[in-house]
Amino acid sequence: MADEALPQEEKKKGGKIKWIILAVLIIALAGGGYFAYTKFFAAPAEETQAEEAGDQQQAQQPAEGQLVPLPQFLVNLADPLGRRYLKLGLEVEVRDEKVTENLTKNEAKIKDTMLLLLSSKTFDQLSTLKAKVELKQEIVRRLNQILGNGSILRVYITEMVIQ
């Protein structure tokens, strides 16, 4: 009879261990699923904030200017190995015809400024959405320094290739 009591106690212990292992596995799978969701599927907070900021700026400023294309820019990026380049096509929204004339008159200054700005950037500084929005704002600031404040309303990226 003593022999019969031992297997029942072992079965009870083995049953508890199975439930503990099962609970640990479920918790581990839930944690892994949460990690995969946040890492691969959920949009990062900085990108959503940059999108919202860009949408708010466009909503605040009415479309009142005309679009003027700038020449395409092809520059080497400031990466350590120097093997990456950027091809960028832009259109700028200007206030009036007078600004369009100033754009053509100051084309050499604009090209120089843009080439220096773009070639100082690295791949990491251009790879996120937030970085692209900041680049557009910086281009507007630089062009307004050349042409006068308020001349350039917005900059639109029409083509961007980083290789």
Score class of each variant (00 low, 15 high):
43 A>L: 00
43 A>W: 05
35 F>H: 08
51 E>Q: 09
51 E>P: 02
35 F>V: 05
42 A>F: 06
50 A>M: 08
27 I>V: 08
31 G>Y: 12
34 Y>T: 07
41 F>H: 01
51 E>L: 12
35 F>Y: 13
21 I>L: 09
52 E>G: 10
32 G>A: 09
26 I>W: 05
28 A>W: 03
41 F>V: 14
20 I>E: 09
50 A>F: 15
42 A>E: 07
49 Q>K: 10
45 A>G: 03
34 Y>E: 03
32 G>M: 04
24 V>R: 02
33 G>S: 11
26 I>R: 03
17 I>N: 14
43 A>C: 00
33 G>V: 01
25 L>P: 06
34 Y>D: 02
20 I>T: 13
25 L>T: 15
47 E>D: 10
51 E>F: 15
21 I>H: 02
38 T>G: 02
24 V>G: 11
39 K>M: 02
17 I>L: 15
20 I>M: 11
38 T>P: 01
44 P>D: 10
30 A>L: 10
52 E>F: 14
26 I>Q: 03
29 L>T: 13
28 A>S: 13
44 P>W: 04
36 A>S: 12
31 G>C: 12
48 T>C: 09
46 E>G: 01
46 E>K: 00
52 E>S: 14
27 I>C: 03
33 G>D: 14
26 I>N: 07
19 W>S: 14
20 I>C: 10
34 Y>C: 04
34 Y>V: 08
34 Y>F: 07
20 I>F: 07
51 E>V: 12
44 P>E: 09
28 A>H: 06
27 I>L: 07
35 F>N: 08
28 A>P: 05
35 F>L: 08
38 T>D: 07
21 I>P: 01
42 A>H: 05
34 Y>K: 13
33 G>W: 09
25 L>N: 14
42 A>V: 11
40 F>A: 06
37 Y>M: 04
38 T>Q: 10
41 F>R: 00
34 Y>P: 03
50 A>D: 14
18 K>W: 03
39 K>L: 01
40 F>N: 11
29 L>H: 04
46 E>S: 03
49 Q>S: 10
33 G>N: 10
34 Y>I: 11
39 K>H: 04
50 A>E: 13
47 E>A: 08
29 L>C: 12
28 A>G: 12
39 K>C: 01
18 K>E: 15
37 Y>S: 02
18 K>I: 15
49 Q>W: 04
19 W>V: 15
50 A>Q: 12
29 L>R: 04
36 A>H: 10
38 T>W: 07
40 F>D: 13
36 A>C: 07
